[in-house]
Simulated assay, not measured.
Amino acid sequence: MKQELKIQLIDTHAGGDVSRIVTGGIDALPGGSVRAQMEYLRDDADGLRKLLLEEPYGIPEMSVDLLVPPSDPRAAAGYIIMEVMGYPIYSGSNTICTATAVLDAGIVPMKEGKQDFFLESPAGLVRIEARVENGVVEAITCEGLPSYIHTHRASIEVPSIGRVIYSVAYSGGFYALVDAEALGFDLTLDEEQELARAAHRIVEAIQAETGFSHYTLGDVGPLPFLHFMGPVQQVAEGYYRSRSATYVHPGVICRSTTGTGTSARLALMDYEGLIHPGDKLETVSLRETGFIGEFSAIEQEDEYRVVKNNITGKGYVIARSDIVVNCEDSLVDCDGLHHILSSRMSQ
């Protein structure tokens, strides 16, 4: 007799960023909200994140979204976002992927045309609009978190780079926003490794010099992200396009431009008077994929101009599978997993 631990997955991607949607095999987590369940997973069962993002099952460039029961009765499902840097309370690409997966799995019945439903993230309720054509999810539009500029055009001396001008936005996490051309980058795929190295140096320098506090959330930890901005081109009335690249972890440039990176960019363009409510920005990645951010409204919170926005992208289902967790495998660390993994005994 041997113990076999299984996790059910739907692998998806949006803009090239792979999100593994965990649909089964995990026991119910304590907590009266998705946020509380996330905090339990983070503090008492972080082994699941490590298991699915490290060898032999995954790589750091992936993300994981665990489906959990929502606390808000309007939501079809809750989801907890896990990435190599930890547990972000929101992510545009992960939301697009999760929405695609719940439609694919029938958790939300798929209907032709446009349909609306809600998901519950650790940040709260998220409205989803799905566009389905011939049984295929062609686009997902989700609410981005209200975004604002915390710091505008500060400067810092960065080892081996020199003086760097940056702004800081909050859009679900704090982002440093940097002009790519000013650092000599064209934002092409062959620059990916050098972009990651430069971003790491800049983020380390900012972390060493200053911290950032959200006007309601307070201290949310050191600034983790950097968004390289290419030149903005106006391609139609109220429609703009810009090459972009988002750094999230040492050595990792996202394959997509990221939803939260796009939201941060909208906040900066509003702060600088470059866009108005109703305008759209298409961000284009190193791999020529894109998300479309729409600036929907402006609100005033304390001293901050807060940009409400929506992010549109397409998710693709790339695999449906069971992962078999073998705790006897020397590459697998099962510490902290047995109390959340549903187990089966088999021959």
Rank of each mutant, 00 (worst) to 15 (best):
F174V: 08
V220A: 01
A198C: 14
Q193R: 14
G259H: 06
D190Q: 12
P277C: 11
R197M: 14
V203F: 01
S263Q: 05
V164H: 07
G172K: 06
P277A: 10
E272C: 10
T262R: 05
L226Y: 05
Y166G: 01
V248N: 03
S263L: 04
Y166W: 08
S213W: 11
L226N: 06
Y166N: 02
G221S: 10
E209K: 13
Y240V: 03
T258Y: 03
V158T: 05
A205R: 02
R255Y: 07
K280G: 08
G173Y: 00
A176Y: 00
E181M: 13
L217Y: 12
P277S: 11
G218E: 10
L217R: 12
V248Y: 06
R265A: 07
L266Q: 02
R163Y: 05
V168P: 01
H276L: 15
L195P: 02
G261T: 00
L223Y: 03
V235K: 10
S171G: 15
A198I: 08
L187N: 07
P224K: 10
P159L: 05
G261H: 00
R197I: 10
A199T: 05
P277W: 09
P159G: 06
L281G: 04
M229S: 12
E192F: 04
L187C: 11
E192I: 15
G230R: 09
L266I: 08
Y166I: 04
G162H: 07
Y166A: 04
Y247W: 12
Y239M: 13
A198V: 14
P224N: 11
A264D: 00
A176D: 01
F225N: 12
A264E: 01
G230A: 13
T188Y: 08
F228Q: 06
S213Q: 13
L268D: 01
S244W: 03
I206Y: 01
L183W: 06
Y166D: 00
Y175C: 00
G273R: 11
R255T: 03
S167K: 02
S171A: 15
L183A: 08
E282T: 15
V284F: 07
Q207D: 05
G273Y: 09
Y170H: 13
S155T: 15
R241C: 13
T260H: 02
H249W: 15
D279T: 09
M229R: 14
G173R: 00
L274V: 15
A182D: 12
H227V: 11
F185A: 07
G273A: 10
E157Q: 12
R201Y: 08
G218K: 10
